[in-house]
Protein backbone atom coordinates (compact mmCIF):
# COMPACT_ATOMS: atom_id res chain seq x y z
CA UNK A 1 0.00 0.00 0.00
CA UNK A 2 1.42 3.36 -1.06
CA UNK A 3 0.17 6.77 -0.05
CA UNK A 4 0.84 9.97 -2.00
CA UNK A 5 -0.12 13.36 -0.63
CA UNK A 6 -0.68 16.83 -2.01
CA UNK A 7 -1.67 19.96 -0.09
CA UNK A 8 -3.17 22.76 -2.20
CA UNK A 9 -5.40 25.64 -1.13
CA UNK A 10 -6.30 24.19 2.26
CA UNK A 11 -7.15 20.75 0.84
CA UNK A 12 -5.12 17.69 1.70
CA UNK A 13 -5.39 15.02 -1.01
CA UNK A 14 -4.39 11.49 -0.05
CA UNK A 15 -4.01 9.05 -2.94
CA UNK A 16 -3.92 5.40 -1.96
CA UNK A 17 -2.47 2.61 -4.08
CA UNK A 18 -2.80 -1.09 -3.36
CA UNK A 19 -4.87 -3.18 -0.95
CA UNK A 20 -6.31 -1.53 2.15
CA UNK A 21 -6.64 -4.35 4.68
CA UNK A 22 -5.76 -4.60 8.37
CA UNK A 23 -2.07 -5.07 7.55
CA UNK A 24 -1.95 -1.89 5.43
CA UNK A 25 -4.39 0.10 7.59
CA UNK A 26 -2.11 0.14 10.63
CA UNK A 27 0.50 2.13 8.69
CA UNK A 28 -2.06 4.20 6.75
CA UNK A 29 -3.71 5.52 9.95
CA UNK A 30 -0.38 6.67 11.40
CA UNK A 31 0.66 8.35 8.13
CA UNK A 32 -2.70 10.13 7.64
CA UNK A 33 -2.61 11.46 11.22
CA UNK A 34 0.91 12.79 10.65
CA UNK A 35 -0.13 14.67 7.49
CA UNK A 36 -3.31 16.07 9.04
CA UNK A 37 -1.39 17.28 12.09
CA UNK A 38 1.30 18.83 9.87
CA UNK A 39 -1.04 20.67 7.45
CA UNK A 40 -4.22 21.17 9.54
CA UNK A 41 -6.32 21.11 6.34
CA UNK A 42 -9.85 22.51 5.99
CA UNK A 43 -10.71 19.65 3.71
CA UNK A 44 -9.31 16.15 3.30
CA UNK A 45 -9.96 14.15 0.12
CA UNK A 46 -9.17 10.45 -0.02
CA UNK A 47 -8.55 9.41 -3.62
CA UNK A 48 -9.28 5.67 -3.82
CA UNK A 49 -8.61 5.27 -7.56
CA UNK A 50 -5.63 2.98 -6.83
CA UNK A 51 -7.32 0.88 -4.12
CA UNK A 52 -7.85 -2.56 -5.66
CA UNK A 53 -9.19 -4.22 -2.48
CA UNK A 54 -10.59 -2.99 0.81
CA UNK A 55 -12.19 -4.68 3.84
CA UNK A 56 -13.67 -3.29 7.06
CA UNK A 57 -10.19 -2.13 8.14
CA UNK A 58 -10.60 0.59 5.50
CA UNK A 59 -13.88 1.63 7.14
CA UNK A 60 -12.02 2.19 10.41
CA UNK A 61 -9.47 4.34 8.53
CA UNK A 62 -12.28 6.47 7.06
CA UNK A 63 -14.17 6.83 10.36
CA UNK A 64 -11.00 7.78 12.23
CA UNK A 65 -10.01 10.35 9.59
CA UNK A 66 -13.54 11.78 9.58
CA UNK A 67 -13.41 12.16 13.37
CA UNK A 68 -10.02 13.92 13.22
CA UNK A 69 -11.26 16.28 10.46
CA UNK A 70 -14.36 16.98 12.58
CA UNK A 71 -12.12 18.04 15.49
CA UNK A 72 -10.55 20.57 13.10
CA UNK A 73 -14.02 21.72 11.86
CA UNK A 74 -12.98 20.36 8.49
CA UNK A 75 -14.63 18.00 6.01
CA UNK A 76 -13.76 14.66 4.49
CA UNK A 77 -14.64 13.27 1.06
CA UNK A 78 -13.88 10.10 -0.87
CA UNK A 79 -13.24 10.14 -4.62
CA UNK A 80 -12.70 7.69 -7.48
CA UNK A 81 -13.68 4.57 -5.56
CA UNK A 82 -13.78 1.23 -7.38
CA UNK A 83 -16.55 -1.33 -7.25
CA UNK A 84 -15.29 -3.72 -4.54
CA UNK A 85 -14.40 -1.04 -1.95
CA UNK A 86 -17.74 0.66 -2.73
CA UNK A 87 -19.63 -2.58 -2.01
CA UNK A 88 -17.90 -2.74 1.39
CA UNK A 89 -18.75 0.88 2.23
CA UNK A 90 -22.37 0.38 1.15
CA UNK A 91 -22.75 -2.84 3.15
CA UNK A 92 -21.60 -0.96 6.25
CA UNK A 93 -23.67 2.17 5.51
CA UNK A 94 -20.56 4.38 5.43
CA UNK A 95 -21.76 6.00 2.19
CA UNK A 96 -24.47 7.66 4.30
CA UNK A 97 -22.00 9.48 6.57
CA UNK A 98 -19.04 10.22 4.28
CA UNK A 99 -19.70 11.87 0.89
CA UNK A 100 -18.46 9.62 -1.90
CA UNK A 101 -17.92 11.04 -5.40
CA UNK A 102 -18.53 9.13 -8.63
CA UNK A 103 -16.62 5.87 -9.11
CA UNK A 104 -13.39 5.66 -11.10
CA UNK A 105 -14.17 5.52 -14.80
CA UNK A 106 -11.71 2.76 -15.56
CA UNK A 107 -11.13 -0.46 -13.63
CA UNK A 108 -7.69 -2.00 -14.00
Amino acid sequence: MNLETEFVGGTLRLRFDGELDHHAAKKAVATIEEYIDAFLPRRCVMDFSGVTFMDSSGIAVLIKTRKRMGELDGTLGVENIRKQPMRVLRAAGVDRIVPIAAPAAKEA
Binding site: S57, I59, A60, K67, A92
Partner: peptide, 15 residues
Protein backbone atom coordinates in the same frame (compact mmCIF):
# COMPACT_ATOMS: atom_id res chain seq x y z
CA UNK B 1 -10.43 -0.05 19.84
CA UNK B 2 -10.73 2.64 17.17
CA UNK B 3 -8.50 0.74 14.75
CA UNK B 4 -11.43 -1.62 14.15
CA UNK B 5 -14.84 -0.65 12.78
CA UNK B 6 -16.84 -3.49 14.37
CA UNK B 7 -18.31 -4.28 10.94
CA UNK B 8 -16.42 -7.51 10.17
CA UNK B 9 -19.23 -9.98 10.95
CA UNK B 10 -21.87 -7.72 9.35
CA UNK B 11 -19.86 -7.67 6.12
CA UNK B 12 -19.32 -11.45 6.20
CA UNK B 13 -23.08 -11.87 6.69
CA UNK B 14 -24.01 -9.54 3.88
CA UNK B 15 -21.47 -10.94 1.38
Amino acid sequence: GDERSGMGFSIMESF
